[in-house]
Each structure stands twice: as structure tokens, then as C-alpha cells.
């Protein structure tokens, strides 16, 4: 077993916000099966706040715990606040990640970021129409 913190184990064993949002306002997908981890984040935005965040993750224990933690951290935050979530802040919240997992599995913040950007670009595009 990799040396995971209690927090990582908790989020791995009981992941929060797993699933998909129907008609999401933004979707962000990162990673691929070659590197071993893949995450998709779905967001629902209301009044510039993340009303709902859900995810699906293919990957190791760390990848699942990271996704769960990011979803928890992001929910209810304004878009600007959520964009400030970084791999480092996620790892800190999880009470640390094994060194070799930090880069490969810590993609949650990136996926969330992508989902928010997706939302913003759709909003922009929609406005132009």
C-alpha cells in the first residue's frame, strides 16, 4: 500500500461528489490512461458561484482522493476563488501526497480550472450569439 495520509484514505474510501451533472455549465477533462490517471469535472454555476461540482476519475487512490477533495474545496466558492485552488493547496488539504504521486495524480485543480474556463468561454460565445 502506498503511504497515504488518513485524509487521503478517507477521501478514497468515501469519495464526495462522484458522478455527473446533467446539462453542466462547464466540463473539464485532463489526463489520459497512458499516464494512468484521467479526470472529468462537471460544474453548475449560479450567480458566479459553483453551485454544484461533480467528477469522474480513472486512476489510483491518490487520483480519486484528489478529485474528491477538489470537489469539496470548490463547491460554493466563487469562480475566482475556485480558480485559485492549486495542486499544492489540494495536497496540503489532503495532509500530503506521496512524492511520486504529486505530479501524476494531482490533476484535480487542473480539471476544475478547465471546467471553469469551459463555462466562461461558453458564456462568452453565448453572449456573442
Amino acid at each position: 500500500m502506498p503511504v497515504y495520509s488518513e485524509k487521503v484514505m478517507d477521501h478514497f474510501m468515501n469519495p464526495r461528489n462522484v458522478g455527473e451533472i446533467e446539462n453542466p455549465d462547464g466540463v473539464g477533462e485532463v489526463g489520459n490512461p497512458v499516464c494512468g490517471d484521467m479526470m472529468t469535472f462537471y460544474i453548475k454555476v449560479k450567480d458566479n458561484r459553483l453551485e454544484d461540482v461533480k467528477f469522474r476519475t480513472f486512476g489510483c487512490g491518490a487520483a480519486i482522493a484528489v478529485s474528491s477533495m477538489v470537489s469539496e474545496m470548490a463547491k460554493g466558492k466563487t469562480l475566482e476563488e475556485a480558480m485559485k485552488i492549486t495542486p499544492r493547496s489540494v495536497a496540503d488539504k489532503l495532509e500530503g501526497l506521496p512524492k511520486q504521486k504529486f505530479h501524476c495524480s494531482n490533476l484535480g485543480a487542473q480539471a476544475l480550472n478547465k471546467a471553469i474556463k469551459d463555462y466562461l468561454s461558453k458564456k462568452k460565445g453565448g453572449g456573442k450569439k
Binding site: 469519495p15 455527473e20 484521467m38 472529468t40 476519475t57 480513472f58
Partner: peptide
């Protein structure tokens, strides 16, 4: 699998 984007 319920968690997996590949399965979805």
C-alpha cells in the same frame, strides 16, 4: 466503474 469516466 461508477466513478470512471472511461466506463461512463
Amino acid at each position: 466503474r461508477q466513478m470512471s469516466p472511461l466506463y461512463a
